[in-house]
Amino acid sequence: MSHTAHIRSHRKPRRSASTIAMRAGVAGGVLSTLAVAGASGANAAEPVTQTIELPALTADLAAQVAQSADATQQTAANYELQAERDAAAANAAKQAKADLAEAKLKAQAKKKAAETARKAAAERASRNADRTTLGVSANVSTGSSSSSSSTATGSAAAVIAFVKAQIGDAYVSGGTGPNSWDCSGMVQAAFKQVGINLPRVSQDQSVAGTQVSLSNLQPGDILYWGSAGNAYHVAVYVGDGMFVGAQNSSTGVVEKPLSYDPPTGAVRVL
């Protein structure tokens, strides 16, 4: 027996070919994986950047921008102008409607006034014959108109004396004396002399007493022109078919016959 028979060999045991091949494959796979990972890491470290070129603001482009802004501003101005025109047209239409309504009211008022004047004129004409008859009857029944119609006593005489004393004074609208009068101002002052307080204006004085017929007048009666409650003139009957009144600015206070301006009616307050 050899003296080295029990000594283990210092040589490494040989690896089989299959083992070597397997290890080589594993190593190759590992290297491949590392290579792929390395490539991926390289790509991730360097991102791709895309550059976009903006157009340069040239003089032409600036002009186009300015022109567009001007056009927008002009459009806005046009809209504002149109809105103002529409508002003005609406206001004009509203004013025209109001003016038309006012004109209609004025026309109706004028028509009513004309109708009132026409009726008053017709009433005057219809009473003219009565006044003429009144004068004739007085003369026939008395033989002298002055013997009956001019006889006034007491308060009536005082009223007549007052109005006759004002003959020749001026007529002034709104006048209440002592040297200028309007028709109702003088009548009011005359009756105030005898303690009777009449209303100030003709309309009210025409209904201040008892309505009397023009064929039955007495000195001191108040004559009115127009209609009762809507008279436009008054005077005092002084007898003998005469009246005294503040007629107008041309004549002033005068004494006239009834035929000069035939009255519409009369009231008696004495």
Rank of each mutant, 00 (worst) to 15 (best):
L258F: 07
S213G: 12
S126W: 00
A5M: 10
N216V: 09
Q95G: 12
R14C: 06
T58S: 07
L214N: 05
L31I: 08
E115L: 11
M22E: 09
M22Y: 12
L198V: 01
R14F: 00
H233M: 06
Y79M: 12
L217V: 01
L258V: 10
S141I: 07
A109W: 01
N43D: 03
K97G: 14
N197S: 13
W181E: 03
A27K: 12
N179V: 11
T58E: 02
K192P: 03
A189S: 04
S202L: 02
L198E: 06
K12C: 09
W225C: 07
A189E: 00
A157Q: 05
R23N: 11
V238K: 11
E53P: 08
P262H: 14
N248G: 11
A76Y: 05
D130K: 15
S149G: 10
L100T: 15
G41N: 08
V140Y: 09
K97L: 08
G265K: 03
K110A: 15
S141T: 12
V163F: 03
S32V: 10
N216A: 15
N78I: 05
T49R: 08
G28D: 03
T4Q: 14
G135V: 11
H233C: 09
G226C: 04
V30I: 09
T151N: 12
G239E: 00
Q95T: 11
I196D: 02
L214W: 02
A83Q: 11
D60Y: 06
K12Y: 04
R14E: 00
Q205G: 01
S215H: 06
V201H: 03
G174A: 08
Q73D: 06
T210S: 05
E46N: 15
R124T: 14
T151C: 08
D70A: 15
G252P: 04
L134W: 10
G168N: 07
A152V: 11
N43L: 13
K192F: 03
E53G: 13
G265Y: 01
V26W: 09
R127D: 00
L61H: 09
Q73C: 10
G195E: 00
D182R: 07
A89Q: 12
W225T: 06
A35C: 07
V26K: 15
A266D: 02
G25Y: 09
R11G: 13
N43C: 12
D86V: 11
A37I: 05
L61R: 15
E102Q: 14
F191Y: 08
A109P: 01
E123I: 12
A246T: 04
